[in-house]
Amino acid sequence: MNDPMAKPKEWFQGGSLVWPLLGLVALLAYDFLFVDGFFRLEVRDGHLYGTLVDILNQGSKTMLLALGMTLVIATGGVDLSVGSLMAISGALVAVLVTQTEMSLAMIVPIALAATALLGAFNGVLVSVAGIQPIVATLILMVGGRGIAMLITGGQIVTFEHAGMVYIGNGHFLGLPFTVTLVLVMLLVTSLLMRKTACGLFVEAVGDNETASRFSGVSTRSVKLAVYGFSGICAGLAGLIAASNIKAADSSRVGEMMELDAIFAVVVGGTALTGGRFNLLGSIIGALLIQTLTTTMITQGVPPAIAPVPKAIVIVAVCLLQSEKFRAEIGGRFGRRASA
């Protein structure tokens, strides 16, 4: 069980990692057999290149969003606004690097603080005003892009700032810098959740909010914090997205990514009903989705119909996770075998 006092390797066993891992392995096996050069890696200028590296790099945004989304979902909520928050952080950074002389060490914290505050605003709507999370975060999902547009004046703001370009395109220790960013965030979040009582409170609130409140847990603060944290994760993802294209494209960036993040969390074994969560599972879920996307691109599947196979894989993994479905299938095969 996922007890905070368990050994570190057991931290992540909230839901079973078996099924998302199985999905990922199956997909990679397909790629190994049918996609030429999928596993080919080469070193140029001391940096590692290849499709697998691309998956890590391009999946970094979903992975970051999934970290924050995991905690929100663990409290029994959902955050639809992360895509729009990405647009806001991108817009802020683009405007600040082009129109001010501030250093990146100032600009990045400002952007992240802004998205954290907006996330906390979601938290206030959910915990204080008692609005359904899906509705509460829909407000910023819709309104957030408008805010981003206001910041950029409705323009696509391009930039050449070396530091900003590095975040999404640079290399660190031979790998894309984004990989380091994800690893650091995963480590920080895991430590925060399991080395303090935060994880216990998040899971307790998600599993039985009333009982948690009666035990003295400040359920409001917990919800405020997870939505705020999700905002920070979205802000980071927004930095990467802006850096990738060296511009803030407020209307397009992060579009539909909230859904990818939710898929990643669910595929990773955290139940939408809240309670036990599994950060590593969400990361694997995000990688699964990115691998799928990349596979379809390399196979020449037209982007317009790409969502179809994606949906099929997601349904398959979700069905595998459902104990009821497995029992049903097991029962069928069992009956047939005995017949």
Partner: peptide, 18 residues
């Protein structure tokens, strides 16, 4: 009362930790 899916230990320490 109970937080059903959490362990006995987590349930026991919840009020104190809170």
């Amino acid at each position: 009362g109970i937080i059903p899916n959490l362990s006995l230990r987590e349930n026991l320490i919840l009020a104190m930790q809170a």
